[in-house]
Design a protein around this nucleic acid. Structure first.
Ligand SMILES: [Mn+2]
Ligand SMILES: [Mn+2]
Ligand SMILES: [Zn+2]
Ligand SMILES: [Zn+2]
Lengths: 126, 126
DNA sequence: AATTTAACGCAACTAAGTTGCAACAATGAT
DNA sequence: ATCATTGTTGCAACTTAGTTGCGTTAAATT
């Protein structure tokens, strides 16, 4: 899979990610681009962009899907695994470039960790 | 809110949690109890049990809701906030009684952390 | 036993995400 | 520039987790 053709729709979606580094929920994206393309197209393009290592996805606090730009990924190596931060005041979601060490758990082998932190973001902080 | 009447349905739901300490997804519960009660009833009972501090909820890897017994909670104090572990082999989900320290993040105030670990559980571990 | 009202079943609904298919358009070859 | 190929799109229908309204049932209290 992956993006093969540079269509207008793909460019529009990529532009949404280029103008702001914070994450975007699919719900927001579908609504924001409803005049440009069908929601099915949004879902399909995001799928392919993720396959290509251009964006990565995760689930927000309601279990809805969010996407953000990858930094140094490719279709071969998807190394964008990190915690995410959702502001409980303004709703903004950001990638956190921090490492949260997971303690060893007896008789269990942790392979993936999904961490969603919630709190006040830079702008909403007192 | 909260559970006011000890109905047959409430007892059936509580029994599901008493016979096994691992978490149960709502999807599983609705299916397992379909002969005993309507799915609406399952959802409503779980809501109330959570209000009462008898169970707590969290989202599994697909964003679907899971519930597990609380240990020392009440309707006043819900202190059951901890990481959860989902086995990628057998699907079992467990509460982890460990503390994962979240490092300080500059200009941001973390208030809640949602941590879902995935890997091999005790039974599926090599 | 009668009264009160929380809890229940049922059907209809909501909303995120998916699928099948015909029409369209990006791309490379002629 | 035109054609042929085939990846991409729009649309409508679908799937499924979870919710809501309402009339009926049954737990608790008298
Ligand atoms: Mn990220
Ligand atoms: Mn738990
Ligand atoms: Zn904020
Ligand atoms: Zn397992």
């Amino acid at each position: 899979m992956g993006v093969l053709r540079k269509t207008k729709s793909v460019e529009v979606v990529l532009h949404e990610f280029s103008k702001d580094s914070s994450a975007i929920s699919v719900i927001t994206l579908v609504e924001r681009l409803q005049l440009d393309m069908n929601k099915t197209t949004v879902y399909r393009i995001l799928n392919k962009l993720e396959d290509d290592g251009i964006v990565h996805s995760f689930l927000g606090k309601n279990g809805h899907k969010w996407y953000a730009k990858c930094h140094n990924c490719s279709s071969a190596v998807h190394k964008d695994v990190h915690p995410h931060f959702q502001c409980i005041s303004c709703g903004k979601v950001e990638c956190l470039e921090i490492n949260v060490p997971i303690p060893d758990i007896p008789n269990r082998k942790v392979e993936v960790s999904q961490i969603l932190l919630q709190g006040k973001c830079e702008a909403c902080y007192d």
